[in-house]
Nucleic acid binder design. Sequence first.
DNA 1: TTGCGTGCAAAGGTTTTGCATGGCA
DNA 2: TGCCATGCAAAACCTTTGCACGCAA
Lengths: 144, 144
Amino acid sequence: MRNEYKTKARGAIMEYLKSHSDQRFTAGDIYKQLNQNESGIDRATVYRNLDRLWEEGALVRFREPDSNATLYQYFGEKDTCNRHMHAQCSECGKIFHLENEFVEEFTDHMQSVYGIDIDPSKTMIVGKCGECKNGDTEKNDSES
Amino acid sequence: MRNEYKTKARGAIMEYLKSHSDQRFTAGDIYKQLNQNESGIDRATVYRNLDRLWEEGALVRFREPDSNATLYQYFGEKDTCNRHMHAQCSECGKIFHLENEFVEEFTDHMQSVYGIDIDPSKTMIVGKCGECKNGDTEKNDSES
DNA sequence: TTGCGTGCAAAGGTTTTGCATGGCA
DNA sequence: TGCCATGCAAAACCTTTGCACGCAA
């Protein structure tokens, strides 16, 4: 096991992601953001830390088919996140931790019916969340 | 609407993907493959066509968190695929069309419990399929 | 002091773009 | 012929890597 140091860069990145836990960012986003705040953190350092934090389970990492870059997002407790799936709203980016009985049933069925052993760390259910469906400021009555 | 020409490049790309519909390829893969077969197709043309074909719904496009590139794969009939989810084996790339009752139940539960309206076109369940779990030539008894 | 993390700089890989030419209808 | 697609070349973009130095423990 490796010893992990508590460094300035690591702290700054986590702090930023924590305080914006409802959004997802590219490494580039974070780099720009941190350098606006006068912290002279290198681009490579951002990448290295994001990678690290993701491996440790502190962040979700995920690629959209639309964008060209990898997105990162903080998501709370990190112990159990490797064991359950996650869903994400395609509009606001909010992440849902799927820790529910019916999800386990689904996983079991996938196993028995299709023979597939779901890898929660690689799977992201994507859809539109309730808030974005209702109170959304856009798309109220478009293309009707 | 734009008129679409039937060109050599377009045909070659589709033909290749169709005859390997159980695999996924990066644009680079396809470029190399086509040029082995003496067709002088440019890299940019490959990108442009893949993009086109994806927009038309003839291909699945999808990014793995591990690899750095976008993967494309042919997938047969395109009429109903927007209505159900898909799963993909993380090893062999095989795609499963999830048209089953329990999948609908899962979808319904996601709706009622989390308020999420799943978008099948953006969701990909990732895991290891039965064949890759058993008969796999690698990883027989590693890290035990 | 030890060795991990950072900054710096450079390189690698993927994808996009402009422009003139070639090919389909 | 008219317009779209292609080839070519260059650039943009994202990400990784090597190395020496700084900093946390």
